[in-house]
Amino acid sequence: MDLAYKIVDFHCDALGKMQLDPKLDFIRDERLDVNFERMAEGGVGLQCFAVFLSERLGEPQFEHILGQIDLFCEKVVGAGVAAITSVEELDRAEAAGQPGGLLSIEGADGLEGSLHYLRLGYERGVRFLGLTWNFANWAADGILEPRGGGFTPEGVELVKTCHELGIMLDVSHLSIKGFWELAAMAEKAKIPFIASHSNAYSICSHTRNLRDDQIAAIIALGGRIGITFVPWFVKSASEVKAEDILPHIDHICSLGGEGNIIFGSDFDGIETHIGDLRHAGQYAQWGEMLLKYYPERLVKGWLSGNALSFLRMWLPSTK
């Protein structure tokens, strides 16, 4: 396989890191797992940048979200990454061989319960929304919220508005009850959703991983599952290797999901890494390793094809 073949990664937290430390340079700063040089080195052609609001910022506010969107425009797009908000922009960037960047919000907390802020986020380029982080917010409960609740009435309106606008929803971090409530709404609307950075619970029983019935529901809806490189989501062990991710791939494939697998590294959102998957520059060797075990057709799908087909179907079109 040509290693210049561009890779798609559906989750990193570089924006949050840069918000906390304005001195970080996106072009080459090695304190960032994802930077411009490492994207080029690893063959990452499209990166989804999450807007995650650190607790160090205090009470989540929309101005914090706008601050990270500004950082995306100034530092990421300013470095030469194309902002992708439509199918046409995706096609232009790919044709030009230019790396692209998508914007997501991880946790609706900073929207402050306002659908007006949601619409402003869309206008500024946000195309994905992770409904919660680990705990409860105004819209829904997260996976670590002890009561295990689902959506609030305001959260149901949030989902409906996202469906209307064309903001795709992300269930990584959402409570199990919330997952099934969203699945019912998504089935009714005939609009799939993704889990941008979650693995298979049957392989590693971390609460953030997806149960088999959840995986099956995402597959049935035509959504995508971003296998992640968070070590403790991969294997309960002191040392985790890249090969330890393969059972998660195999398991999702066994459930019929070979066409639904994508990757969501969670680079810059973790301080402990898999030994041979520490930053975006190592994505190319990850692709080489996958080719030792799987046919090229499947590997190309997982590295980019499945993600790109989803984006071409669900990103807005200006035509």
Rank of each mutant, 00 (worst) to 15 (best):
N134W: 02
F135T: 05
F135Y: 09
N137R: 11
W138T: 04
W138V: 00
A139K: 13
A139Y: 07
A140M: 05
D141M: 01
D141V: 00
G142F: 03
I143P: 03
I143S: 12
L144Q: 10
E145S: 11
P146M: 01
P146W: 13
P146E: 13
P146K: 15
R147Y: 04
G148D: 13
G149T: 07
G150V: 02
F151V: 04
F151I: 03
T152C: 12
T152L: 11
T152M: 10
P153E: 14
E154K: 15
E154F: 05
G155C: 12
G155W: 15
G155L: 12
L158P: 02
K160E: 09
K160Q: 12
T161G: 05
T161V: 08
T161I: 08
T161A: 12
C162K: 15
E164C: 03
L165W: 06
G166Y: 00
I167C: 05
I167P: 04
I167K: 14
M168H: 12
M168R: 14
M168E: 03
L169N: 08
D170M: 03
D170G: 06
V171E: 01
S172T: 12
H173N: 09
H173V: 00
H173C: 00
L174M: 11
L174D: 08
L174S: 10
S175G: 10
S175E: 08
I176G: 08
W180V: 03
E181Q: 14
E181Y: 10
E181F: 04
L182H: 13
L182P: 08
M185S: 03
A186Y: 00
A186P: 02
A186G: 04
E187F: 04
E187Q: 11
K188L: 00
A189M: 06
K190Q: 11
K190M: 01
K190T: 01
K190H: 11
I191P: 03
P192W: 02
F193D: 01
I194D: 05
I194Y: 02
A195L: 03
S198T: 04
A200E: 07
Y201G: 06
Y201E: 00
Y201S: 06
S202P: 08
I203C: 05
C204E: 10
